[in-house]
Write a protein that binds this DNA or RNA. Structure first.
Length: 418
RNA sequence: GGAGAGGUUCCCGAGUGGCCAAAGGGAGCAGACUGUAAAUCUGCCGGCUCAGCCUUCGGAGGUUCAAAUCCUCCCCUCUCCA
């Protein structure tokens, strides 16, 4: 590794961010731009509340990818310390406080996942857990050294707190800003980290960190926030009737992941191509110009590229093939890599009532839901509509040794014996 | 600590003794229309061995033939006062 001030030859990553729509706010456009002319260390915080990221975290992850490609050094901070306190921003219910073991376990999964996007070798990227420095803090020292730099008046004026003052705000939550500010300062001291990025809801916390560092060290460090991503219908991304879309292929198969992207709204495709793929902007603009049903081509590119980034080329190819077969003119179950459900031969010999198989295979959440689905004409076996909810699915109904179940127009499961 | 308001099915939110598995909206699912899109229209939207049965309205008891609704205690949230 070269020195910290190694010159970077590629395009300024801030320009890339702006061109691709990553930027909502920057502390100082001119200063950040010149900062990024040299090799810079930047950080983003992530919650270790699950063992996988979901697409809601994809935007920050992609920003780290661009950072690294531009020669900078990203730090992914796992919020283990903050998770130990419980997350206040989900105001409906207090999250169960997580044990350190669980957090560490999650963190190792998350690192593996992140490693698909950015390289950690030779410290080209770093992953740290803020529990390492937060849990050792001593209250009196913290108040005296850190707390004195914070004006309560100013904190209350922050947008993130102002809204919460209506509904109520507890002391832990009020302290989040201090803890996150401390993180930023700590990373500055330890890694010379000079830029923090995050969702726009983090703006206040990011500023607090930059402020703290300025007061304590006399150094100007910076923040950048991403736009809050909603689909064009105003819904937050990444939720389907089956729950979140995960980046872990165990939780969301590459096929489902592909389907998630190909089913995006027309209006979102251009934006998503620039945010969630690494295609050159010329290509993005070309795809963006497509009209009418040609937009499907852009969606296919989006789905393929996004799947490739997350799961690799092989999986992306398979997902694409499966999708083409299922939605192409020749819908067949053969050699298609859709989610598979295994059952035993005896059951099929006896015949399984459709609604039970639909529930067992995970296509429906309950048998009641399966009954309704089929009653409404949304249940199919090998492309044939199932007429009665308890129609038996038998051994002799197979096609190529499998039974292709379909719920509605898009959700498939292949049943096989085994 | 005191006074008041409130906790309802995924979310918001009606419901003050039977007509309540609980209005309405949102989200979600399906059908029609399409382009594996959106919008629109229609249906569904607690569970089950489904014309019936079972479990829900912060928790635990109680009154009643009958409770989300009334009573008691407890837990939690918010507002004002200290």
């Amino acid at each position: 590794m070269k020195g910290a001030f190694q010159k970077i030859k590629v395009e300024n990553v801030l320009d890339i961010f702006e061109a691709r729509g990553f930027v909502e706010q920057v502390t100082d456009r001119v200063l950040v731009s010149s900062l990024l002319k040299n090799r810079t260390t930047c950080y983003i915080g992530f919650d270790p509340t699950a063992k996988s990221f979901h697409v809601g975290s994809l935007l920050p992850i992609m920003s780290l990818v661009h950072m690294q490609r531009a020669g900078h050094r990203p730090i992914a901070v796992i919020g283990g310390g903050t998770a130990l306190v419980g997350d206040p921003s989900g105001k409906t219910e207090m999250r169960p406080i997580m044990t350190r073991e669980k957090i560490n376990e999650n963190a190792s999964f998350l690192k593996k996942q992140l490693a698909r996007f950015i390289e950690f070798e030779d410290e080209k990227a770093i992953m740290v857990n803020n529990a390492d420095w937060l849990t050792g803090l001593r209250y009196i020292d913290f108040l005296r050294d850190i707390g004195r730099h914070f004006s309560v008046n100013r904190m209350l004026a922050a947008e993130s707190y102002r809204a919460r003052l209506e509904t109520g705000l507890n002391f832990i939550e009020f302290n989040y800003m201090l803890l996150q500010a401390y993180d930023f300062w700590h990373l500055f001291k330890t890694y010379d980290c000079r830029l923090q990025m995050g969702g726009n809801d983090q703006w206040g916390n990011i500023l607090a960190g930059a402020d703290l560092t300025r007061r304590m060290e006399g150094e100007i460090i910076h923040g950048l926030t991403f736009p809050l991503l909603t689909t064009s219908s105003g819904i937050k991304m990444g939720k389907t009737h089956k729950g979140a879309i995960w980046l872990d292929s165990e939780l969301t198969s590459p096929y489902e992941y592909y389907q998630y992207w190909i089913n995006q709204n027309d209006e979102d495709v251009g934006r998503f191509l620039s945010l969630f793929t690494l295609l050159p902007m010329d290509e993005v603009r070309r795809l963006r110009r497509l009209k009418g049903s040609d937009i499907r081509k852009a969606k296919a590119v989006l789905a393929y590229e996004a799947t490739k980034l997350c799961h690799g080329q092989t999986e992306a190819d398979q997902a694409q093939n499966a999708s083409r077969q299922l939605f192409g003119p020749d819908k067949s179950a053969s050699s298609v890599s859709v989610p598979v459900y295994r059952t035993n031969q005896q059951r099929l010999e006896a015949g399984i009532p459709s609604y039970i198989l639909f529930e067992d295979s995970g296509l429906c959440k309950s048998r009641g839901e399966a009954r309704r689905l089929i009653a409404q004409g949304g249940g199919y076996l090998n492309g044939q509509k199932i007429k009665v909810f308890d129609q038996l699915i038998k051994l002799e109904d197979s096609e190529n040794d499998s039974w292709l179940l379909r719920a509605g127009k898009k959700r498939y499961v292949k049943v096989i014996v085994g």
